[in-house]
Design a protein around this nucleic acid. Structure first.
Lengths: 136, 136
DNA sequence: CTAATTGCAAAAGCTTTGCAGCGCA
DNA sequence: TGCGCTGCAAAGCTTTTGCAATTAG
């Protein structure tokens, strides 16, 4: 049994064609961050006839199962990426749209401390830097 | 001339009733962070007949003018707050919806450094901590 | 007076949902 | 076979836009 199928089973999801195909696209795409529309178009290009509604449903199920992460960058639509369990934040280039991942222990630590100072603990967090190439 | 009117003039916007009223609501509301819908409902409650479309248009103009800031917290709708020129980030309580503002120099500094390490400079950033009350 | 602004309704864009039919276990 | 899944179309939500009427300067 393939790796994808195992992941689906573990998530308690039936191994269906649309789910396997969507998982494949997320795994093989060279852009790690895709919108539902991106995934949908990618399916169409591969000649696979999957409805957009199904793409949304499957991505939402994957998110609940912890297989993918959903981000709300600016621009009105959500983007999804495979969850590799290596937490990171994002830097989005405002000129090229390029997305760079990073993780900074100093920031992570301060976040926890700040929440604690206010009597809270962190459930989740979202840090996005909107950047542009530096003139050197 | 009132303070609000001056702010509008400075922003190059005609001093119209809807604009003054919306600015007033933002200034006098006890919840600093309001959605367009919140502002709209608040207007209706005051007996002011302003269209929702106008609320959106005015808030967008205010944002362009630097009078307000727009944030995309989770939940599918944007929230607006008056821009006091004191930069801060946000902590949103997932249980009560309460919004707490904070600013941490250590994090701010690291953000700039990280962007620079990748050859970028920061245009804008968004840091939101989703938190819950800590069991003590 | 004239250009900017508004209100209404319609449209747009992303996402979700109802339902009948299809497919995996 | 049976329940879950899919596709389609329709609806939902927030936000934007076209246009005629109104208003500020």
């Amino acid at each position: 049994m393939t790796n994808e199928n195992l992941e689906l089973k573990k998530a308690g999801l039936k191994v269906t064609l649309p789910r396997v195909k969507i998982l494949n696209i997320l795994e093989s795409s060279d852009t790690r961050h895709m919108s539902a529309e991106d995934v949908y178009k990618s399916l169409l290009e591969s000649g696979d006839d999957v409805g957009l509604a199904t793409v949304y449903r499957v991505l939402t199920q994957f998110e609940s199962a912890g297989l993918v992460l959903r981000h709300n960058f600016e621009g009105g639509h959500a983007v999804f990426e495979l969850n590799n369990d290596d937490h990171h934040d994002h830097m989005v280039c405002t000129e090229t749209g390029e997305v760079i991942e990073f993780c900074d222990p100093v920031i992570e630590k301060r976040q926890k401390e700040i929440a604690a100072e206010h009597g809270y603990e962190i459930v989740d967090h979202s840090l996005i830097l909107y950047v542009k190439p530096k003139k050197s």
